[in-house]
């Protein structure tokens, strides 16, 4: 990892990689017109994704009492587990934010470091969740058991899929940072993937509150 040693290599670009800058006075992620468009576009995407979750939440809330005599949330949810999941995700949102922070200061290697930490935290979150799901299924609480469980697995699982996708995406960006350093283009990517990550944290907070806390209330 020789590149890690030299801070001044960071501003070099991969072969033939000349980034055309439209607005040098702006923050780096907004320096190309394309960057500004894509960031706004991604905000808009998050708004639609929010509605997607809103509909899943609506379905879950309507069906949460429809347990058909099967296991209830109170019986299934494990406070230490979902608290750990929450803390991990909150921490990863923080470390992701630090990656953006370092990106603005131009420290490529620190950006990469924080992103790797973020992705690893994400991975452990997914691991915990998968484990939780498997345990439930082994106790007979499968998504075919009752409408409540169908809604539970789908809602929480959709969030989990989002997180998993985010990990893959982040990995791709880490590789690109290695290849190209911080350019207006890679900076935009780092910025956007972190928006996504923070957003998933927002969604999780509601899963934590509405699904888990209200489930054990």
């Amino acid at each position: 990892m020789t590149t890690l040693a030299h801070n001044n290599v960071e501003h070099h670009h991969g072969a033939g990689d000349h980034v055309h800058v439209d607005y040098p006075e702006r923050p780096i992620e907004y320096q190309t017109q394309d960057g500004a468009l894509k960031i706004l576009g991604f905000w808009v995407f998050l708004a639609t994704d929010l509605i997607l979750f809103a509909c899943l939440f609506a379905t879950f809330i309507v069906l949460r009492t429809h347990t058909d005599g099967g296991p209830t949330g109170k019986e299934l949810f494990d406070v230490p587990i979902f608290t750990a999941e929450t803390l991990i995700l909150l921490t990863s949102s923080f470390t992701g934010g630090l990656a953006t922070f370092e990106m603005h200061r131009g420290h490529r290697n620190r950006v990469i470091g924080w992103l790797i930490i973020t992705a690893l935290l994400g991975l452990s979150f997914v691991g915990l969740e998968v484990n939780e799901f498997v345990h439930m299924a082994m106790e007979g609480a499968t998504m075919q058991r009752s409408a409540f469980l169908s809604a539970f697995f789908t809602l929480v699982g959709t969030h989990g899929c989002h997180v998993s996708l985010g990990i893959l995406w982040m990995t791709g960006i880490i590789i690109q940072l290695f290849q190209r350093g911080i350019t207006p283009i890679t900076a935009r990517k780092v910025y956007i993937v972190n928006m996504y990550w923070h957003f998933l944290d927002v969604v999780w907070v509601f899963l934590f509150t509405i699904v888990y806390l209200m489930g054990v209330m």
Partner: peptide, 15 residues
């Protein structure tokens, strides 16, 4: 085989 909108196991077609 989930039960969101079925008539069984607590599903609710109206949703």
């Amino acid at each position: 085989g989930t039960h969101f909108f079925t008539m069984l196991h607590g599903g609710n077609p109206m949703m």
